Simulated scan of single mutants.
Amino acid sequence: MSRTYHPFRRAAGILPAIAVCVALAGCSSTASDTSPSAAGPASSAHSGSESSGSPGSTAPTRPPRAGKAEPVSPASVSIPSVGVNSTVMRLGLNADGTVEVPPAEQGMTVGWYTGGAVPGKPGAAVLIGHNDTRFGRAVFHDLKKIRKGADISVRDKAGKTVHFKVTGMETVDKKAFPTDKVYGSTDGSTLRLITCDGAFDANGHPVDNLIVYAALR
Rank of each mutant, 00 (worst) to 15 (best):
P103H: 08
G83R: 04
V101C: 07
P102G: 12
V72R: 11
N94V: 05
V99C: 12
R147W: 02
G97I: 03
E100Y: 02
I152S: 04
S73N: 14
D151T: 10
I79G: 07
V139G: 01
R65M: 14
V88F: 05
V110Q: 06
G83I: 03
V99D: 09
L91I: 08
S81V: 10
P71C: 14
V84F: 03
M108T: 14
N94S: 13
A138Y: 00
V139L: 00
L143Y: 02
K68T: 14
A125Y: 01
H141P: 00
M89R: 11
F140M: 02
L127Q: 05
V88K: 02
R134F: 06
R65E: 13
V84S: 02
E70Y: 13
V118I: 15
G136W: 01
A95C: 08
T87Q: 14
P103D: 11
T98C: 08
G149I: 09
F140P: 01
V77M: 12
S78I: 11
W112Q: 05
K145E: 11
G107Y: 10
D151I: 05
G92E: 05
V77S: 07
S78Y: 05
G107E: 08
P71L: 14
S78C: 09
P80Q: 13
P103M: 08
P71H: 13
D151K: 13
G116V: 00
G67D: 07
R65N: 13
V82P: 02
R155A: 10
